[in-house]
Amino acid sequence: MDWLSIFQNSFTQMVGVAAVVYCLAALGVNIQFGYAGLLNFGQAGFAAIGAYAVAVLVVTVGWPLWLAIICGVIGSILFGLILGVPTLRLRADYLAIVTIAAAEIIRQVARSVTLNDYLGGSDGISGKYAADWYALNPFEGIDFFVLRFSKNDLWVVLNGWALVAIIALLTWLLMRSPWGRVLKSIREDEDAVRSLGKNVYLYKMQALVLGGVIGSLAGVIFAMAAQSVQPDNYATTLTFYVYVIVILGGAARVFGPIIGSMIFWFLLVFISELLNNAVRAGYISSDILSTDQIGQVRFMLVGIGLMLLMIFRPQGIFGDKKELALDER
């Protein structure tokens, strides 16, 4: 058992690229699901829009990065509007079905052979995404005890967490504003808010779009960090992971998604590293568990974790159970 390597990987991934990307996506879902009570299961679709906007516009067309990011954000706003118009007047589960379907539409269109020349099919698009941006990096890689980042990863992670901090601050400010209070009261009792003369539909739409824009930024960072996009990275599992993160950290808490993402990725990497090492060292017979299957065990644990959390501790680690009156709609 190589304990140093296990902890090295776990702690690095705790604040690593994946943790940043999922944290951003989770910050978006937290606004939708946590504060407004909207079941957006299409966060993967929003992220895919951000990622593909950067991929197509920067790599294939050759636009500057900032313009591509703006286009991605606009794209996600339009996507949010398209999803919101038919569903926000309906019961919450309709939104869940439609958003999950819409995210699948995006993924299947992105990986289709028909659009291979534009979107790169199931291989996606790789190339130079953000050379100018990486060139700004004044730091070298880091290799300090349990933290280990390459030069580029370190730059992504630093910028990513800075973006997370800005969005978290924005969320905090928004949620203590009158706008945020209306949003929370819609989650509690929609009819009461409506009877006070507020346009519930409009508020929900704004929350959906805002969360979606943050989700698209997650996709932008993902694409820039990986220097590639692959359609299957934006499958529904991304959305499910994000929900685990939001619920684990505590929905309707500003720091919920941040803590949730860190703990989630630490546990995920730690468990798979541990199993991996145990199988290699012969503590677990490879007849029972081969190293290929560790990824599958990981997914099973996420599934069970989501169930148990929702049943026994729906408020997560930091949440307040009173804030989670999500039902009766």
Binding site: G37, L39, F41, A92, D93, A96, F240, Y243, I247, V302, G303, I304, G305, L306, M307, L308, M310, I311, P314, L326, D327, E328, R329
Partner: peptide, 11 residues
């Protein structure tokens, strides 16, 4: 609740 049950079914 219904939404909690929905999330449980996803898990």
């Amino acid at each position: 609740g219904l939404i909690a049950a929905l999330v449980v079914s996803i898990g």
